[in-house]
Design a protein around this nucleic acid. Structure first.
Length: 262
DNA sequence: ATGGTGGTGGAACCA
């Protein structure tokens, strides 16, 4: 079974690229982030034409997460227990959707950006990750052998090798000690980065800013991850980052991240 | 080659 995650930065702007990629990638499940549309705007038929069912949570032009599966859906869950709210009035944003597909529990997650270290959104980001950690620990306590994958755009570069130049990020979000500690806490709930062993760095990234020729200059960040429980991780036979998808006409600023299970 | 921000919505915000 092949599973992937991809921040597409608008599914409507990217639908042809996404379906072209799906048609040649032999992926069974793909988690999408930043679909940037409401449920009624999601191009579900384009996925059905390729044999994929879709579950999506989107309520505005912001955020939006989806799972596309050709191995079925069970127990679809929108949001996780304790997921913090944002905005005025406060609401739980469309940043998490989970389902069981082909016997694997998968989540498509879009972690809040944080914006700036002194921005309330930064507190929201840390709080969001703390509640995700608590909820994940509960799932694995209830079912230690659960094959679980938390996939998505984590908006954190966990190690110095995960950015092209640490000096360029001085005082910025994504690399702060608190964000890195929050990411490690999620791992400590019982998950591992199942992609890194197959895609060693340095210089291996999943995201390149649209600005300032970041991609051709290889100035990227590794912020998209597939974190697996022990029973998931032991089935992983290979993994890759499809940086070819960052090339060409009208790409997302993120590349797909892929794992194969035996 | 991989190319000098892009998406949404229709101004300003988000990333």
């Amino acid at each position: 079974m092949r599973i992937a995650t991809w921040n597409v930065n608008s599914i409507r702007a990217r639908i042809d690229r996404v379906t072209d990629w799906l048609a040649r990638s032999d992926v069974d499940i793909v988690a999408l982030q930043e679909t940037k549309c409401r449920d009624d705007q999601f191009p579900t038929d384009r996925f059905r034409d390729l044999g994929y069912d879709v579950v999506h949570d989107g309520r505005s032009q912001w955020n939006g997460v989806a799972l596309c599966s050709r191995v079925g859906f069970d127990d679809v869950t929108v949001g996780f227990a304790g997921q913090p709210s944002w905005g005025e009035p406060p609401e739980v944003e469309a940043r998490a959707i989970g389902a069981t597909c082909g016997g694997v529990r998968v989540w498509s997650l879009y972690v809040p950006n944080g914006r700036a270290l002194d921005d309330p959104h930064y507190r929201y980001k840390l709080d969001w990750l703390d509640h995700l950690r608590t909820t994940t620990a509960g799932w694995l306590a209830d079912e230690p052998d659960l094959p679980l994958a938390l996939m998505g755009d984590w908006n954190i570069a966990p190690c110095d090798d995960d950015v092209w130049d640490m000096a360029a990020f001085d005082g910025d979000t994504h690399v702060s000690a608190d964000e890195r500690a929050a990411f490690r806490s999620v791992l400590d709930a019982g998950l591992t980065d199942v992609v890194r062993p197959h895609t060693p760095g340095p210089g291996v990234y999943t995201y390149w800013d649209y600005k300032q020729l970041s991609f051709p200059k290889r100035r990227g960040m590794r912020i998209d991850f597939i974190l697996g429980s022990p029973s998931f991780a032991k089935r992983v036979t290979r993994a890759s980052i499809d940086r070819e998808e960052r090339k060409g006409k009208s790409p997302s600023d993120h590349a797909p991240v892929i794992v194969d299970l035996g």
